[in-house]
Design a binder for these strands. Structure first.
Length: 281
DNA sequence: ATGACCGGTCGTACCGGA
């Protein structure tokens, strides 16, 4: 069985490359992130031509996740239980401005964004995840990111209790160690490398999820993201922020895993490369 | 050369991305 995860940075903009990649790599299951479209806008017919069913979760311009599978997609879950939404920054009122309290229900529970979708594919429970960015460590978005990870931990703990093969892969927006960024000094004071974010990943591993580290194919570290700007990819100045977490028994069956850097080359790539994982049946 | 931001949107600048 071949599984893969890829942040495509807009499935519409990436469609020709996505279809070509499916034909070349032939994964049985592909988890997508940042599809950036509603479910009704997803190119389900195009991927169906290649034999893939699509489970899709989208809310418009931002975010968006999907699971493509040619070995079945059952028990689709849009989001996970307890998943928080983003309430936004609290605006400081102008001087003399009347403070208007927001609607209580809205303030206490904003709607979750399209950042997680689960599906059972060929007996494997698969989650495609797109963690919040966090923006800056001082921002409300960063607090939201940590809340989202805490809720994810609770949800995955329940999933692991089901005692079936489990994969939780996608764009975690956290580099697990300093080795996972091209220059740690550049990231001092930035998100993606802070101790609370790394602790959130460690808490997932403590549940029994294993980090399936792919082969980098080039260079010493398996980066999965390179900024579009300033020739970062060509200089291999990247980050490992896309992760493939799997339950122990499933991880034991992994034969090989690699970052497909070829998909980051050429005209019109995503800024992320896919991770491809081959598992013994 | 892999080659020096990109995608989205009521847009022709700006936000979000990381």
């Amino acid at each position: 069985m071949r599984l893969a995860t890829w942040n495509v940075n807009s499935v519409k903009a990436r469609l020709p490359r996505l279809l070509a990649w499916l034909e070349a790599a032939k994964p049985d299951v592909l988890c997508l992130q940042e599809t950036k479209c509603r479910a009704d806008q997803f190119p389900s017919a195009e991927v169906a031509e290649l034999g893939y069913e699509a489970a899709v979760h989208g809310d418009g311009r931002w975010n968006g996740v999907a699971v493509l599978s040619r070995i079945g997609v059952d028990d689709i879950a849009l989001g996970f239980p307890g998943e928080p939404g983003y309430a936004g920054e609290a605006a400081d009122p102008e001087e003399g401005e009347q403070i208007v309290l927001p609607d209580l229900a809205e303030a206490s529970s904003p709607s979750p964004e399209a950042r997680a979708i689960g599906a059972t594919c060929g007996g494997v429970r698969v989650w495609s995840l797109y963690a919040p960015n966090g923006r800056t460590p001082e921002s409300a978005h960063y607090a939201y990111k940590l809340e989202w990870f805490a809720a994810l931990r609770t949800a995955l703990e329940a999933e692991l209790a089901q005692d079936r093969p489990l994969v939780a892969c996608g764009d975690y927006n956290v580099a697990p160690t300093d080795e996972d960024v091209w220059d740690p000094s550049v990231f001092v004071g930035s998100t993606h490398v802070t101790p609370p974010e790394r602790q959130a990943l460690a808490a997932l591993r403590e549940l029994g999820l294993r980090d399936v580290v792919p082969s980098p194919m080039k260079g010493p570290r398996p980066y999965t993201y390179w900024d579009y700007r300033a020739g970062m990819f060509h200089k291999n100045m990247g980050m490992r922020i896309d992760l493939f977490y799997a339950s122990e028994a499933f991880a034991d069956r992994v034969g090989s895993a690699y970052v497909d850097r070829e998909a980051r080359k050429g005209k019109g790539p995503s800024d992320h490369a896919p991770i491809v994982v081959d598992v013994q049946d």
